[in-house]
Every structure is written in C-alpha cells, then in structure tokens.
Amino acid sequence: MPLDETPFGLPVAFDHISSQLKALWDSDSERTRASRLNFVLYCQGSDSLKANTELISRFVRSHACRAILLGDCPSAGPSKVSAWIQAHCHLTKAGAKEICSEQITILGEGLSEDGVANALMSNLDYDLPLNVWWQAPFPKLPTSPIWARVDRLIFDSLSWVDPSEELHRLDLIKAKSNPQMTVADINWTRTMALRQAVAQCFDMPQLLAEIPRLNRLEVRHSPDSRITALLLVCWFAAQLGWMLEHTSEGEISFRDSKGATVIVTLLHSPNDSVSGVTVRSPDSSLTLERTRGSSLFLAAIKTPAGTSETHFPGGNLETTALLCEELTPGLRHRVYQKAAAILELLLP
C-alpha cells in the first residue's frame, strides 16, 4: 500500500481510521512504529494543513508520537468529516532502522464542539499523554470534554490578536482542565535562550551585586514581537520582585523591592523576534545582542572592574525547534505562570 497518495497521505473513511492504520503497518514489516505521546494540532480552516503536516514530519524525528492534525471549518450545512492517514519515517543515526510515527489528518466541516472532541478522542493512542497545540483563538466558553483530558496545552501567544482576552479564556480553560495540565507558550520559549544568557551573565559576582540597584531595562524587538518582548520584561519583574507602577505605549515603570523605580523601554529593531536587551544600574550594564543571521548572542558586560565580551547560544527560533523545547519536561512553566500574571496587568 503506498504511504503517500495526497499531501495528507491516504484518504480513509473516518470510522476506518484504526483499521486502515493497522493495515498500513501490517503491510510494511521493515519499519518500526514508535509512539510515546499523542500530539494533537488543532487549527481552523484547511489552509494551514499542509504547512502543519510538514511541521509534524520534522517534529516526529525527535518526538515519536501519534499526531492528529485537525482542521476545523465552520459550515452552515450538515457536518462532514474527511480523514487521511500517513507515516513519517526516518532512519536512526546509525542508519540501521527506519522509525515511523503516524499522522491522522481530519478535516471537519460544521462540527460542533462535541463533534471536534469526539473526532479527537476516538483516535487517541491509549494511555499516552495528550499534548494539544491550539493554533486558534481559545473558545469563549470551554465546554468541550477534551479540556479535561489534556496533559499539555501548547499555544503561541505571538499569534494572539487580543492577548488580554486570550489570557482570560486561558484562565477559564485552566479552571475546567486537569489540575496537572501544563501550559506551554511557544512564545515564552522564544525568549529562553536570552533568559538563559542573561541569567548566566548575572553569575558574575560584580553583576550579581548590582541586582538590587538595577534601574533601567531596554528590550529591542521586531515590530510584530511586542508580546514576546513583554514576556521577557515580565520575567525580569517576576524573578526580581518588581511591582508594576505605570505603563504606557513606549515605557513601563516598576518599583523594586526597596521602592526604587525601574524604567523599562521597548525599542523597535529590524532583527527577528527579541534581538537584544540592556539592563543597567548606575555603575554597570549588560547588553546582549543577536545580530541578524547569527546563531549566538554577544554579551557586553561593563562593571567598575572592567569590560568583557562573550558569546552565548542564541537558541533556535524555528517553530519545530521551539515545539521540541516546549515538550522537554522542566520547571520553567512555574516561572511562566508568574510572568503571565504580570503580563495581564501590562495589557490594555
């Protein structure tokens, strides 16, 4: 049986997905099916199905999974579901084995919220954790039973049209969800390399001693990455105990734990995402800058003891890499919750 007849694989009847998948694997004994999680990618419309299929094919190289791509198309007519199955295979490093993950693509037209939930839940791989990337505005009222089943809810706040409303809806989902559900913002991960580099620089005793005296923060970002820049600002505020004092379009002021003012400025930059940050005290400064095309941040540190420069990994801003990073277990989401609480205060 050929594995790829359309960009989404082999068309199958919705109620035959399981049996067709089984037939697909039975027909090919040379390949090893691997799966350690369910990865559901929910999007609205059919336009992004192809790009998301390409993303999944890259993602499964490091995260063997059952991927379910669901395109949800509103329709006035009767509901209709189309489905396809395909395998994404790659050779292991040694080249000895071909490892495959399976993708189910579902295009739902005119489905109710319960219909979407049913389409997903009837195709999950038993017992494996459920990771959902919600590539659409969150529902106003999260009534779908799927929310109680999600182990990790992934989203990208960079794509939000109304961040304040989305944060509110996210709170509603969290209230309905499994209490253990992890919230994973791809946009937060975009700032991770920068946060790590900043934190590493503050290991230097001369800079560490300046933390109580920090009074200015500048963040340079591309015009469409304001929300990413704000997340970085919120990280500083959450970690250093700054309290919001005042916010305007170009400037934000916080009070530190001793009551002194910290001024934050957001500056546009021609480079991608958040490309640089400068943090200052009266006597010292740290500037981290990613130049266009470089994979590294250059850190320039000035203290009364002298100046120095060093490089740090700049992280990978490619979506697959960010997604893979998000699925690595860790403690960073606790910090995200603190930062997101401050973000809600900063948003109009």
Binding site: Q196, A199, F202, P205, L208, F236, Q239, L240, G241
Partner: peptide
Amino acid sequence: SQPPNPLKEGLSSRPLPRPC
C-alpha cells in the same frame, strides 16, 4: 559561593553549575 542568582530560578530542573 555567593548569594543565589534569582534569575536562574526555574531555568533548569537540575542544580546549575557555579562559575569556577
């Protein structure tokens, strides 16, 4: 060897190495 670095909290699930 020095006060904890508050910016490192939550960045890693393992103890972080100290400069040396």
